[in-house]
Design a protein around this nucleic acid. Structure first.
Lengths: 224, 224
DNA sequence: ACCTGAACACCGTTCAAGT
DNA sequence: ACCTGAACACCGTTCAAGT
């Protein structure tokens, strides 16, 4: 490393948590698993990598802050006056898009709890929508973890899938459950129809159809 | 289960892919994210860490082999003559248990495709069960990716959750979707019932109830 | 033929030193 | 008060050298 300040324009505003999160999310968009390292972050910020430690205790805290910001923006984009089912659909697919668009942060979305305003806003939205649907508190307690867990884990899996094959873009075009095993298998030699249909499946389609089944279950629960 | 483990002394048989996988899975049981490093593996095998490269091209290949072995054993434990719904329940919960019991390998389960005999056996089981349920090939093509994706991503998320808080055992006792946010929130001050119920939720319960909803959907699809 | 071990290019993180 | 940069203890992986 040459001693700083050559070439390169200088972002070099005073460092703040928000600008660090911005930079982290910018790096997280690229499908490079190691793209959001502290060293890359320092380069992006025009500061020493370790300066980030002034604002976040460790990597964990930074990732959670970035994730919380994604959630906050997703919730903000959901029309508040839409029917409950539309609201849930909107928040779920917005969340999926955000997580997949920032795969480096997104892979951590499945199991992390941020404790921040974004998470709280999303929680509020979920609980309110389920209550508006007509569920009792006991029913909300049953369906809310299921919906949240489904969306979080499926989205993270898709982000991880996208991170994995940088190589075969065609491969990541297909749904991640679509093993090559299935596609070339003599396993189901007669079921050509099955192979054709599965090979056309996209990750987002799988996500959506599962979500609709869960929402159907919510709707059915209100009718008893 | 393989019976070839002889206490503490010296594993040091001639290195083979199978014994390496055994050792890797042994290390993967411990809830230490970095526990399955090549260096730890070398120690466990009584060999130089890099000797593993003689048998697996890289870490990716090793993880896939270990995962495939888990799947193979899970499928082998499913009674082949049970009704289709019982078979699917058995394979799903066996898979969840295996993945959560080997969290270091399990976290990778969501998005990986092994292409091995274990994966093929599991695929065969799934397709056969759905066909036995009465689904058409087109319906199988719709529900199979959903079931596989659901189980894979939820199981991986639970494994990741278990890896994360080594610290608060009580925290990982609770379902991972259960934010502290919800538990101490003034958010729903009236809904004490909701908080109480959610705080009693376990990860495995969430997994199971979602699975049953999906299986209900499969069953309903056969009646049209 | 198979294993070894030094070496390489990375990580996240700490901390004494600078300004 | 805030940032720097060397240093530490790790990674996965490569490759020339050993047996």
């Amino acid at each position: 490393m040459p001693s700083t300040s050559e070439g390169r324009s200088r972002p070099r505003t005073t460092l703040g948590s928000e600008s660090i999160i911005d930079a982290a999310l910018r790096l997280a968009r690229q499908p490079d698993p190691a793209g959001m390292s502290f060293r890359a972050l320092g380069r992006e910020l025009g500061a020493d990598p370790t300066a980030v430690y002034r604002h976040f205790r460790d990597r964990n805290e930074l990732v959670e802050a970035a994730l919380d910001r994604l959630m906050f923006d997703v919730v903000a984009a959901v029309p508040a006056d839409a029917p409950w089912r539309d609201r849930l659909r909107a928040v779920a697919s917005g969340y999926l898009d955000a997580v997949v668009a920032h795969p480096v942060v997104g892979v951590e979305a499945a199991h992390r709890t941020t404790g921040g305003p974004g998470e709280r806003a999303m929680l509020e939205l979920l609980l309110a929508a389920l209550t508006d649907a007509g569920l009792s508190p006991a029913q909300v307690a049953r369906y809310y973890p299921l919906l949240a867990g489904y969306a979080a884990s499926m989205a993270a899996a898709q982000a991880a899938h996208r991170l994995q094959d940088d190589r075969g873009l065609e491969a990541s075009e297909r749904a991640w459950v679509t093993t090559q095993t299935l596609l070339d298998a003599e396993l189901y030699p007669t079921a050509v129809a099955l192979r054709d249909q599965v090979s056309r499946l996209r990750d987002a389609d799988v996500f959506r159809s599962g979500l609709e089944l869960l929402l159907d279950a919510v709707e059915a629960a209100t009718e008893t």
